[in-house]
Design a protein around this nucleic acid. Structure first.
Lengths: 207, 207
DNA sequence: ATGTTAATCAACGGGTAGTCCGTTTCGCTA
DNA sequence: TAGCGAAACGGACTACCCGTTGATTAACAT
């Protein structure tokens, strides 16, 4: 028996190797683009033999996938009903952020290293696509769980693409600019634009 | 003398080779991800010797860059003053698309092959980043050329990130879904969300 | 203590990227 | 149209990285 009943390996050598390799990849990915990282680099930094790496993972992509699972599943949980984030706030004081945006940015800040890597270091978009899909899924749940009387003024798919990609884009920039704004501030700004619309937010008065 | 005064090569062999190689890359890129395309593939499809390729381009990335220059420069010109696209429409009938959005989607439709490649086939994001930057630049010009009385209700950088990334995201999806909507329709929907804000567009009445 | 399994070490084949150079073909121009 | 120069060809070569294998050593679990 080399693994406990709940999935995780129990042999200390395995735990040690996987941890070393994971840390090595994250460490390297903060220094240079993911595409330039060689399996050789990973194993050298981890002080692990290259063939040992291949005994655990097919390639660096599978390794990154494994690392990502944990984080992205936590991200998906932000959309769960028990979080009570389903409805936007609509406070007229313009100082109360949408609770989902707030929870989202706080989660991102708490896992900055990981998200910075997948958003700014990986040219392969599969992981950021999963992140986008998770955010899109949240808005889908919010819309479909709203009162049926509410009528969409724009097709659902376009609305979801718009909401999820605007969030992703501002998030990516937020990391690229080294998070000069706090999670609360970012959530508030996204809330304001969502309430006002882009034109009004930029100062135009709608006719 | 191997090139005319205005940059373009004049020797028919050069013109022929570059055209063959460009066409081959675009053709291959519609069939499989850019990362899987080998220089060997390109030269074989172009019926050109591999060493000839290296006489013209450093690698497939430089070749793609050269192809992109022409298209992306046309995209950037949509933001030029002479287009008169600077102000959003604000028709209350909700049937008049923002002229920039309309010009944008029409340009994309006219160059579908190219944009489909850089948005859905290339994992390297450098070209889509340039596209994003071009759209972002337009909104920057629109905002800064507006009346100074107009006061931003959200920081400029966040506003620009929001506007440009929401446009990019919906565009990418538009291609992924094989353009089931017309350019005019897409432009109109983006205009509506920009006027109403995301919350109202999804049916909520702002408090 | 012992059997089992992981990790190590060294080496190999396969494939692609670039480069190089001698030869051939082609196009411009006089 | 003849000939010069540039471009394209063909083939080979190095370098690098990948993924795998087999024999050996070390560490773990019981």
């Amino acid at each position: 028996m080399t693994s406990s009943r709940l999935g995780g390996p129990t042999d200390r050598r395995i735990v040690r190797t996987q941890q070393l390799v994971r840390d090595a990849l994250l460490s390297l990915a903060t220094e240079k683009p993911f595409s330039e990282i060689l399996v050789r680099d990973i194993t050298e930094r981890a002080n692990v033999n290259r063939s040992t790496f291949y005994a655990h993972y097919q390639d660096k992509f599978e390794l990154m996938d494994k690392i990502a699972e944990e984080k992205l599943s936590a991200l998906g949980k932000l959309a769960s009903p028990e979080y009570g984030l389903s409805a936007p706030p609509f406070q007229t004081d313009f100082e109360t952020p949408d609770p989902y945006f707030l929870a989202l940015f706080e989660h991102l800040a708490e896992n900055e290293t990981f998200y910075r890597i997948i958003l700014t270091r990986m040219q392969d978009s599969s992981l950021s696509d999963r992140m986008l899909e998770s955010i899109r899924e949240f808005f889908y749940l919010r819309i479909t769980s709203a009162q049926p009387s509410q009528k969409l003024l724009v097709p659902l798919d376009i609305l979801l693409d718009y909401a999820s990609s605007s969030a992703m884009g501002t998030i990516r920039r937020w990391f690229e600019q080294n998070r000069i704004y706090s999670p609360h501030y970012m959530a508030l700004q996204l809330t304001r634009i969502s309430e006002l619309g882009f034109y009004r937010a930029m100062g135009y008065e709608a006719g």
